[in-house]
Write a protein that binds this DNA or RNA. Structure first.
Lengths: 340, 340
DNA sequence: TTGTATGCGTTATCAA
DNA sequence: TTGATAACGCATACAA
């Protein structure tokens, strides 16, 4: 049913080897033969058999290097699960993962880890980069030699194969829409964000604000505080905000530190008096969704964010296939108690 | 890195053929040799290479038969997309799809289509069965000869490889939870269901009712009407309900016929006065979600409902691997205007 | 009851 | 610039 390299060779009156050389641009073939073979291949609609390809390239061992800021951040647990699953599914293709986990967002540390990973010999790279010029420069240097995929958090000015992650602005809009559905009239919302230096967090604020301004103008953003994704800081700033803003009736967390913030609300006796929307599904968030303290949490398919980068790089290594989209945005999943 | 059948043969001091016979229980091998080889294989943690397996079984052409009640029901469009995608991904494994589409829910018609499909020679079957004893009997007969997977709509008493679809009761609970979040105090809800004979529709009503009864007792179900998934009927019964029930403030559609129902509401001047929750994402539902008429619609991963059955049957055909779970429930996706 | 040869579609390595 | 041949890991038909 399917066309093989052999059939093409027969029809063209040449050997398999020549056809292989033509189809894979290996050179050393007369231009006229080349054109002839290419024509026949195109006519027959030749598509290489990925299975056979995999079988023969199995001898080669490929290593996909992974660099991820996962230490101390449970959000990445599910991403790593997705990566492990992908790794297993491509085991037969002779592809291995070298995962390097680091903590925090220091440019120096990330650069050092990058050096280290490259030094141990990798054939492809997937990472969650800090959006920094020095990182970008280093990545472009690497991208000259091997395929690079960026996930979860994007970086500008890098020649990457793809970005896999959330559309942060859009997810802010969804949060705004949901808040509009459940907020009381003339609701005052307090925003607890992660860091003003994180583009994703800012986009979630912009999307939220833009949306309620247009569709629910009676809702107002009363205050914004940053907690640096730290529970203690979050506790402190949330407490201050709740005391400072009279009549505050809703909280919008754009990042981590939810547990600390909720502790403050509880201590001040707010409990179920606040409408609360968060992101992701950490154990603490699940618990508070279950008990009804949190109304909605928005997830970003973390498993898929781990699975896809590995599969994309594997496909590129084994078949040279580039991803269809340069930006592969995850679905924005709305989670409540019953569908988490 | 990975153990091959050859290595086992060498270590056991037998030929590849014998190892093959042992590992695949083909018989004709001395018990002691059998035990010996099995021991070595287990010790080395032998796992057959699926890629090589696929390459060799490629000669065999497998056909997966699909029977689906998709004609006239746009919900199935996305399911079929998933099937096409799965078909393409297993093309190299020599597996083809034979899709038979029928219309409606007549047991006779489904039986006839089933006969026809089997007669044309299939090696596996996936279908959306009517939950009927005669169908079950026929399916059990078929299941004796080839693997059967059921999707979207389950059937009892059939020896199937798996069911892939929604947990209807659970999705009813989610709808109840959402209604509780957005409904005004002491809200009266009207339910427009598909058919009292469809288990899935009834489960969606039960889940909804049970949940609001427990968590939002001030909300009451004021009326229930069936529309048989027909727009005209839906228009009629919805109109009657809206006129009959004073102070009705919300509608819960468990199935199709949403467009007809909304037309009735519009004509009676209800427009945005009603909180409306629906299922799935037909073009009409998308439009009304966009315009704010519908608050939430709950989706059931239709693409995946098409993709998974095909992949499961393919895995079974090529590697003999059975699905991990007998019931593979889809996520319940909450969709609003901004994340549809 | 066992071993051997052949082929699946591709790539890689020779030799011509 | 080409063509022939050997792998990759497995299944299968056939020979012993």
């Amino acid at each position: 049913l399917n066309v093989t390299i052999n059939q093409i060779a027969q029809l063209a009156g040449v050997s398999r080897g020549t056809v292989d050389r033509v189809l894979n641009n290996r050179g050393n073939v007369k231009p006229e033969v080349m054109a002839h073979v290419k024509g026949i291949a195109a006519e027959l609609g030749y598509k290489p058999n990925a299975v056979a390809k995999a079988l023969v390239t199995r001898k080669k061992k490929y290593v996909i290097g992974i660099l991820v800021n996962s230490i101390g951040n449970h959000f990445f647990d599910e991403i790593l699960e997705g990566m492990e699953a992908a790794a297993e599914s491509i085991e037969d293709f002779g592809i291995l993962l070298a995962i390097k986990k680091i903590k925090g967002y220091s440019v120096e540390k990330q650069l050092a880890a990058l050096e280290e990973l490259c030094a141990q010999g990798i054939n492809a790279l997937a990472l969650t980069p800090i959006n920094d010029k020095r990182i970008a420069a280093k990545l472009n240097e690497i991208a000259g030699e091997l395929p690079v995929v960026v996930f979860n958090s994007d970086i500008e000015g890098v020649n990457k194969l793809a970005f896999i992650g959330s559309d942060y602005y859009k997810s802010g809009e969804v949060a705004g829409e949901l808040m509009g559905k459940i907020a009381p009239p003339d609701c005052k919302v307090g925003i607890i964000t992660g860091s003003a230096h994180m583009k994703g967090h800012n986009d979630r604020i912009r999307g939220f604000s833009d949306y309620i301004e247009e569709y629910f103008p009676s809702i107002t953003v009363a205050d914004i505080e940053a907690n640096n994704d730290d529970e203690q800081t979050s506790y402190r700033v949330t407490k201050r905000m709740l005391q400072k803003v009279p009549g505050i009736a809703a909280l919008y967390f754009t990042a981590g530190g939810v547990e600390g913030g909720l502790r403050a609300a509880h201590e001040l006796g707010f409990d179920k008096a606040l409408k609360i929307i968060t992101f992701d599904a950490t154990p603490a968030i699940r618990k508070n969704l279950e008990s009804g303290i949190i109304s909605f949490t928005l997830c970003q398919q973390p498993y898929r964010q781990g699975y896809l980068p590995v599969r994309m790089l594997a496909d590129y290594l084994v078949s040279g296939v580039k991803p269809e989209r340069q930006n592969d945005y995850m679905d924005i999943e709305i989670k409540v108690k019953n569908n988490i």
